[in-house]
Structures are given as C-alpha cells and as structure tokens.
Nucleic acid binder design. Structure first.
Length: 426
RNA sequence: GGAGGUGUCGCCUAGUCCGGUCUAUGGCGCCCGCCUGCUAAGCGGGUUUGGGGCUACAACCCCAUCGAGGGUUCAAAUCCCUCCACCUCCGCCA
C-alpha cells in the first residue's frame, strides 16, 4: 500500500510513478476522491458521536422530566450516529480498496517500460562453447533421464502436466542444494525457517498476490486459504500487526518451502522439462529493515545470490527489471539469469525485490525507533535457489560428452563427495 | 470431531455475575525529572495503537481501540450471536 500521506500531498509524483509502469493515473484520482469522501464521513460521524457521548454522561445524574427529555434527544441522535457510522465504514472501505489497487511506485533508478526494457547490469562466468568442445549438448530432460535424476513421465501420470519426480541423483541434488544454500545463509547471519505454505487471505493480500497476480494462485476449495507461490508470503506475514524494535533490524530470515503456481497465462511457454512447473521447492531470503537501509540491503541480497551462482560455476547476468515488469509490490527488482546452453539464452534463476514499505503498510508491520517513534519499515526478498531451475542450469552447464555431469567443487561436500553424476541403466 | 475453559493499552493483572461515576485498576519493565560523590534505594511524573481537526507533520481538542465482526440499548470491557486463536480432557490420526 502506498503512503496515504504521499498520495494526498503529492499525487503528481504518484501519477508519474504509475506512468513509468505504463499505467494511467485513474487509480490515483479514484483514491484521491475516496480520501476526500472518507474524511468528510469521518468528520460527520465523530461530531455526532461526541455529542452522543456528552449527552450519555448526563443521563445517569438527571432525574424526572429532565431525564426523560435527555433520553428522547439521545434516542434520535442514536439513529443519526448509526447512519453516520455506516457511511464512514463504507467510505473507509472504498478508500482502502482504491489504495490497495495502486502498485508500489517504482524506484527512480528502475528502467522505465515493460518486460523487454530491462537494463543489463553485469555478466559473470563463461558460457561453455560446446561446438569448440566437439559435441552437441543434451537438454536437461535428456540428461535427467540418463542420470535417473528426473522422471517427468511419471510426474505427469500421477499429477498432470508440469509435475515431475526427482529421483536418485536428482533428489540427492535437491537436498545438497538446499543444505548448501542454508549453510551459506546461516553463515551470513540469517535465521532459518520452515514456514507454513497454506495461508489466509490476509497474508496473500498483504504481500500483493491477490491483485492481478490472483490468477496464478491456488485456492483451497471451500476454504478461505491459499497455497503460497513463494515463502515470501508467510515470511512477510510472520510479523504482521507487530511493532519491531528498530534495534533488532535488519532481521534476516531464510526459508525452505514448497511453492505452488498455477502458471495461468503461460500456456505453451516452457512446456518441456522442469523449467516452469506447478510445484517446486525453494530456499528464499527475506529481510525486514529500515527504509533508509533498504536499497543497500537490496544490493546485499543480490550479492548473496551472485555468491551462490558463482559457487555453482554458472554463467549468468544480472538485469535491472523495468518498472512495468515489477509486479505490484516491488519498487525495484534485480534478476539473475543463468545461461541455458540448449536454449541459447539467459533465463531467470533468482530474483530479488525491494518492496520498501508497500507490504509492511498492508500487513501492519512497523518499527519502534529512537525516541519511541513508530515508523514504517521495509521488506525485501531474494531467491537463493529455486530447485528445478537450478538443476536445469547445473545439468546443462556441467554436462560432458558421455552424458555425465561434473559436480562443482563447492557442491561436492553436500553430495557425499561425488565429483561426477554418472549415467545409470534403465 | 466431542466436552469444558481462556482472550483487557510491552509483560502480568483488577474490572465482566448486578451495563452509566471505566476518562480501564495495580504491579513489573521502560522513559523523563528530583535527590545522591558514583551506583543502588527513595520520591514525583510519564508510558497502547490507528485516525480526524487545527497546525510549525509542535502543543492542543476530538473519535475509534478491552481477540475479530455483528446485535440489543439512550448508553457495552460488561448482555446476546457468529467467527478466530490458545489451553485442558476425550476420540481419531501422520
């Protein structure tokens, strides 16, 4: 939720930020009008209510005729108060909805435009030249089959399209990646978490996933609960309605959790393999910090993502995502995209967002600062590893001509010391 | 799933039966001041959060807030209903 005060005092700035995302200022105008209506309604109600309370105080002391008269007056007033309160509640709700519809204003530094208007910040590692090495790379589906690591056919048989089993070396790889990621995060001072992945609407709405993104979310039939698409949701909602002692900031959490996505609207996209699936496990970093520190923390999260990809010896680039592609909550977002040899392009492996005070305002999370001041705080999130995509990149990048896959040195201790994943029979 | 209990402004707690004087009690913690050679003790004061008005975004005034939402009433922490969370016991179960 954007700051109502900024909206009221500087609506043009909010409109400019909307324009950067390619959106009109209509939502801003609607919120502004709702704000005016709301304040009028509040004034009406409070005036009547104050009068009612005044009269109410006199009643117990009054006697006889005076008392009867007071009762008569306050009785009619009671109806007015009730009507005014209803009007106030409605105006308030309308205002809230209008505010909720406005995305987080993009950061000044974020590139303007849509999906294709990202800016490349940096490139890392070296793409493998299979032509020079003299063999044609296999894609992860084929490698997964050879290694007995990924079973897509049975995944589809049991659960449908975009499902899979990780088997043998594939399953081992998941646990190795998870443990390695948790070790890295723990070493950086993160608190490890295993959060619930079934949440109430509040958590979903608070993190901005019930707006345009609602189509992508699994809702439990007959229940007011949702399966989360990322542990960002339970991690952000973890401190909802709390006032955090500023001394404890930044608070860094790292969670392991399954993630569920309907992938509505991505029909025909990435249909082969496990690059885009309805369920996957992920290790996610999440930070609560001050608004002042948020941009720097964002770079720290990016740093940890890069450290991770470096250790896996992947070739990747970092992009600064354009305003129109930020989603509802983020003011700025960096994606790390790894080179996928058989696709011949960079694909998103990790992503880190600075959500400033957008989520905390919605979730009622604030900080108590020096002098007792209660002020908004910021949330940020970043992927350490999303298992299937990491496996895709690893297998394809480190494959050898015979179908075996080299294990990066940093990962070996987590894979029982294995230096190589080798083809298995049948 | 069944039975019972609990939910008060950081923590603990009074108040709820019998609605109005609750402008929510007291303790702890915390903050400010006094006292003190320093510390401790003592003394005095302050200490929920959100919103509105007015404004220097101060002070001040007002409204809401006793788990959440409804209802009864001139008036609700207090009475009624629904929901949520937690606790105890029973049943079932990974």
């Amino acid at each position: 939720m954007i700051d109502p005060r900024v909206l009221r005092d500087d609506p043009d700035r909010v409109k400019a930020a909307q324009a950067k995302r390619g959106l009109s200022g209509d939502a801003v105008d609607r919120a502004l009008a709702a704000d005016t209506a709301r304040r009028t309604a509040i004034a009406d109600f409070e005036r009547l209510r104050a009068e009612q309370k005044q009269l109410g105080k006199q009643i117990p002391q009054a006697q006889g005729e005076e008392r009867a008269e007071l009762l008569a007056r306050t009785k009619t007033l009671s109806a007015d108060v009730r009507a005014a309160e209803t009007a106030q509640t409605e105006a308030d709700e309308e205002w809230r909805q209008a505010l909720l519809a406005i995305p987080n204003p993009a950061a000044e530094e974020a590139p303007a435009g849509g999906e294709d208007d990202y800016a490349v910040i940096s490139e890392h590692g070296t793409k493998r030249d299979f032509e020079a090495e003299g063999f044609t790379p296999r894609d992860h589906v084929e490698l997964g089959k050879i290694l007995g690591a990924i079973d897509i056919e049975r995944g589809a048989k049991v659960s449908g399209s975009r499902f899979y089993y990780l088997t043998g070396a594939g399953a081992d790889l998941e646990f190795a990646l998870v443990n390695m990621a948790l070790d890295q995060a723990r070493g950086a001072g993160f608190t490890t978490m295993v959060p619930p992945t079934l949440v109430r609407p509040r958590a979903m709405e608070g993190t901005g996933f019930l707006g345009q993104a609602a189509d992508d979310v699994y809702r439990i039939e007959g229940q007011d609960t949702y399966l989360v698409g990322t542990s960002e949701v339970p991690l952000a909602a973890y401190h909802s309605d709390e006032i955090l002692d500023a001394e404890t900031l930044p608070r860094r959490y790292v969670a392991f959790s399954p993630c569920f996505r309907k992938e509505a609207g991505s029909h025909g996209k990435d249909t082969r393999g496990i690059f885009r699936v309805h369920w996957f496990d992920k290790v996610e970093m999440f930070t609560y910090t001050t608004l002042e520190d948020a941009a720097e923390e964002h770079l720290r999260l990016l740093g940890w993502e890069k450290e991770w990809l470096d250790k896996l010896e992947l070739a990747y680039r970092v992009i600064d995502v354009a305003a129109g592609d930020l989603g509802l909550s983020a003011a700025r977002k960096y994606d790390c995209e790894a080179w996928i040899p058989t696709q011949g392009r960079y694909r998103e492996l990790t992503s880190t967002s600075d959500c400033t005070d957008f989520q905390t305002r919605r979730l009622g999370i604030r900080g108590r600062f020096e002098g007792g001041d209660v002020k908004p705080v910021a949330t940020l999130n970043g992927t350490l590893t999303a298992i299937p995509r990491t496996i895709v990149a690893l297998l394809e990048t480190h494959q050898q001509a015979d179908g075996s896959v080299r294990v990066p040195a940093a990962l070996q201790p987590y894979l029982q010391g294995r230096e190589l994943l080798e083809p298995v029979l049948g």
